[in-house]
Design a protein around this nucleic acid. Structure first.
Lengths: 351, 351
DNA sequence: GCATTCTGCGCATACGAATGCATTAGGAGT
DNA sequence: ACTCCTAATGCATTCGTATGCGCAGAATGC
């Protein structure tokens, strides 16, 4: 209410400055600054006077001035490849919570692959407008993290990694996750497996695939490994291609849950029963995967922990630019639901 | 590469300033500023010299200093109630595109209902750190938009509205959408309808419900109108309640698509066939609604247009604070898919 | 050939808060 | 009663960029 009153009776446009508060409280501007920031050298009495004057005038410190002087903005950038698939919003929600708790605002930088390596866009990251950057969209070939790191911008890489860079990286154990998925299908008896993975230039795809192949070396021929975007449409398209091809697989490994759901959608439309006629596995265990309409067998990649901890790590890194960088691998655990089962006998007989 | 080189050979930590560029180019700091900002009074020759020096040194203008001086930050705030349901991420994607095109960065402000009216949190919105605010999370009882508006922060309200406020509002025609949904069910012959809506304090829920009731006055008794969050869980819970109650409805109107999908999930789990045993309708027509696993009958609320235009409007409003505010209603159109059909005969007989 | 208008640039200051240093007052110590 | 210290505050400067104003030299007018 104090805010309201002062707002209507305030000077024309100009916002209230610390000098005006100082005048009202009968002290110097520097005293206002110190009082409001909790400097211990200010007496209790003065502090209260200043606080009251500030409240009455509806004073709010100007963030640009504060940033200019203090060399910190209280803003972090979070870079994601997209935001309309379910995976990132879910992470962003956790990330946002952490940053908010630490007193940081979050600017969202949507970084579509096709606009990468556009150096001009780096400007807004090097201009000291963000105190640090959490990069969730790194690709193996991206030089951007290196440039930023060289310019002294605190960086943490989440989810994906970039080799040969001395920065904090928090990623899931994609290799083990790949192995777990493959082993699960192998255990069920599948011998005709296909994979609809994400973009080859992502570390997630690369490592998941390596894990998968380390188990399914024989039964997953390269021609049954498809690459596409991490999107519902890509899964949908891949499934149509695979089920209409010559060698119809009895199981499809999806690069992530979003792709897996696209696959399920296509299969249902084609009248292919899941899991009886086709097993589907995903990665990430996004919330949707547990919905009854999907009940998707997938791998919990510790995404929530990565979100939380990578945000925390960035906050630490901003405060202590030096200190050893850590590269952490988060454990993955298979979550078996309803989309995987043993292949039909006939399929086995075809062998 | 120029960036790289200078980075490794740069001064200890301090970033390059316009003064250093000036020294290198043999001109005054003000000339650097003008040359780089494209001031027409600078000669072509000088401009090129300055640009080269800036490039060589890897100069990037400090955004805080620029903001302090120019009184604009190039950042807009976008306030959403949550980000893990599909609706907002999808909007944010469009919104982000518009703001990026207009040269604005976007800080995401997740504004959970339970933390509302916490005036202290307004600080970060009044400190001139954002040039304007796009509010997608307004509730009917929220005084926050009024306070911000009174303090001169450019505001646009998207999706939801707040009465008695002279700001730009771009919302869907919720009333007509409600009518359309209700009429559709009526036409199909449903007489036992229930509704699982969103929070009562949202303008969307209020107006959709008014539209619905204007058509279904008799057949939708208050006790079959449930209110909850706009979430999958809320839909799931509501469905369980409704289908296990005494009067089992033949159709449920969901407050939005996310709720509708929660309802479908619960129904499937209970073994209730959709649409044969239960019709479900949503609002918004989010992408997921068209997925084959759902094929949800819903209402296209013009969300994409609202996203795009509300972002544009905010940009205009920032540039011209005055000028008449507009309150636009975007047309809604029913999209019939596979989740609605005529009620079973037996249900009719029960009448 | 002198007065006058441009053109191009430098000078100085403002933006608003934070902070090192100087200053004042008051109390303690002897 | 005088010195010394501490506490509390004021003073002045700084952060880096943008910009109004002024000044020089060149171009134009007659």
């Amino acid at each position: 209410m104090a805010l309201d009153d002062s707002a209507s009776s305030a000077k024309p446009p100009g916002r209230v400055t610390s000098r005006e508060v100082a005048a009202a409280a009968g002290v110097h501007q520097s005293t206002v600054s110190r009082a409001l920031r909790g400097d211990s050298r200010i007496s209790q009495a003065t502090r209260e006077q200043v606080e009251q004057a500030a409240r009455q005038l509806g004073y709010v410190p100007n963030s640009s001035a504060r940033s200019l002087r203090s060399q910190r903005t209280g803003i972090v950038g979070v870079m994601v490849p997209n935001i309309d698939n379910a995976y990132y919003p879910q992470m962003l929600s956790d990330i946002n919570r952490e940053f908010a708790a630490a007193g940081y605002s979050m600017v969202l930088i949507v970084d579509p692959p096709h606009r990468r390596s556009d150096v001009s866009r780096l400007g807004s990251l090097l201009d000291a407008s963000v105190d640090g950057l959490l990069i969730l969209s790194a690709t193996l070939d991206s030089g951007m993290p290196a440039v930023l790191h060289a310019r002294g911008v605190p960086i943490v890489l989440g989810v994906r990694s970039v080799p040969g860079l001395d920065v904090d990286i928090m990623e899931p154990d994609n290799f083990s996750a790949g192995r777990a998925v493959a082993q699960h299908l192998l255990d069920l008896g599948h011998s005709e497996v296909a994979a609809a993975m994400g973009p080859e230039i992502t570390s997630t795809t690369k490592h998941r695939l390596l894990g998968i192949q380390s188990v399914l070396a024989g039964t997953l021929p390269p021609e049954r490994i498809l690459h596409g975007q991490y999107s519902h449409e890509a899964g949908y398209a891949a499934c149509n291609r695979l089920l209409r091809g010559a060698d119809v697989p009895t199981a499809i490994i999806a690069g992530n849950d979003v792709i897996a759901i696209g696959i399920m959608d296509a299969a249902r439309q084609l009248g292919v029963a899941i899991p009886d006629e086709l097993s589907v596995v995903g990665f990430d265990d996004i919330q949707m995967a547990s919905w009854h309409s999907f009940r998707l067998t997938t791998v919990d990649m510790g995404t929530a922990a990565i979100a939380e901890q990578s945000a925390r790590r960035l906050v630490e890194r901003i405060q202590h630019a030096d200190g050893p960088k850590r590269h952490e691998l988060f454990p993955a655990s298979l979550t078996v639901r309803g989309t995987t089962t043993a292949p039909r006998k006939e399929s086995l007989i075809v062998e």
